[in-house]
Design a protein around this nucleic acid. Structure first.
Lengths: 252, 252
DNA sequence: ACATTCTGTGCGATATACGAACAAATGTCA
DNA sequence: TGACATTTGTTCGTATATCGCACAGAATGT
């Protein structure tokens, strides 16, 4: 790609939009400039452009995003066949298991939910398509990181903030890499309250017909009802069944 | 705003992202140029910029969006207090009603889901935060359009494609305007299978402390279980209760 | 073989970014 | 309260980046 094939004004604008995710709600020009490390004049032009197009509101002092901005992410969910393809299988899986089932893909050091069939709420946070969790401490994240090469997985770990969410959270990179190796050979990952106390989950990879891992699916359950030790025997067969049902559907 | 406070390269790029939502999955440079009505060279630069930043993949021929693009919409859901504020109330409402409860806001002629507590799936399509439906034939849409002035509501109707989704769908603008007037005085809207056969719903507005309508909430139910005539007596009290509980929370 | 459509590139005209300067608003402290 | 220091939003001139157009070559379809 040539130098001139890059529209820096566009790139700067996207950076400004993402700045809203890092804080809350309202941003002044100066705040946005600090977050994006761009010049105040430049940020101002981006924000006024967003306002002009209806992606943001401006009260003369603060900018806030409008729901129109959801069109951008929606463009992905509507345009990508994977979420729609997975959804009915997740519904079925969720019903059979009597627990929530989800699907996600990897974006950098995060997993991003692309589909979900929820039963009762078991987590304190609300997960919907588009929601993000750190990959290193989520069952689907373990599966997706394991599917990468060891070098690449390690590189992502170094870029992650390996936070000790609960006493159970594994934060040692070497230990995690070893766990990825186990996940690769055994074909599943189990998380026992590493993200949040009271929550267990089990995940398996979803491969396309070339054997590339394109997503992960999981089942989450309250630890009080389903101890981590029982996750495998209870849910792995169901997950494997869904995995097998999806395989022939994932051409290309 | 001065002419020079508008970054047209940014605006063009956003248009390119939205182009993906209109079709499916993969776009070539020429296809994107047609959809956006922009010059091919310009679209090419925007797409290469998206690819360079990791928001899109490029196989040399087609561009596809990556899940990274969800960061943009997520910036809104994470940055806006409304979805998080509504969620627990929707959970409670959904549980009491034994049916799905949702919240949405207006974006042009569409309603956009910003939170949802779902029980069994009753619609053929899968609704998640970010999902869009035409406002004119959705219960929350009726409530939100009714909250606008009559002139503004009519203007949106003229911009809408008033499609006859089912034999029940109201498509006459004057009839719809009259219905908005009823909604305004009575404080709720009921849809009897206008969007999809087998689906009824009832919605009420959510106002802030200045009396401005900032969102709508609804309950949807299968027509086979709950005839439209029973929607009001069954669910309106629950909706009003939620509405009242939310009112003091919506400052500003 | 031809017509059509596509992608990539060079170029002149135009739009944008940057840094600096200024004005207005806000905060601080005696 | 008033004087001063900081922060913030806005404007300006200019160097630079981007746009749209036109064209060439490649790919595709007829």
């Amino acid at each position: 790609m040539r130098e001139t094939d890059f529209v820096s004004g566009f790139a700067r604008g996207l950076k400004v939009i993402e700045a809203f995710g890092e804080t809350r709600q309202r941003l002044s020009i100066a705040e946005a400039a600090k977050l994006t490390e761009l010049d105040r004049a430049t940020v101002r032009r981006s924000l006024l452009t967003l306002a002009e197009l209806g992606y943001a509101d401006y009260d003369g002092k603060f900018f806030t995003l409008t729901p129109k901005i959801l069109r951008l992410g929606h463009a992905y969910l509507a345009a990508t066949p994977l979420p729609a393809l997975l959804q009915p299988h997740l519904d079925l899986l969720s019903e059979k298991a009597g627990q929530s089932a989800s699907a996600s893909v990897l974006d950098g050091a995060d997993i991003v939910y692309i589909a979900r069939a929820s039963q009762r709420r078991v987590m304190s946070i609300n997960l919907t398509p588009g929601s993000r969790l750190p990959a290193y401490c989520a069952s689907m994240g373990r599966v997706l990181l394991a599917a990468l090469g060891e070098r690449e997985a390690r590189e992502i770990l170094t870029r992650s903030e390996l936070k000790q969410n609960t006493p159970n959270t594994k934060t040692d990179p070497d230990e995690l890499i070893a766990e990825f190796r186990r996940v690769r050979t055994e074909g599943y990952a189990i998380i026992d309250q590493e993200l949040e106390i009271g929550l267990c989950s089990i995940a398996v990879p979803i491969d396309n017909d070339r054997g590339e891992t394109v997503a992960a699916i999981n089942i989450g359950a309250p630890a009080a009802l389903v101890p981590a030790a029982e996750m495998k025997e209870r849910y792995l067969p169901l997950l494997k069944e869904t995995q097998a049902a999806l395989r022939p559907l994932l051409r290309r």
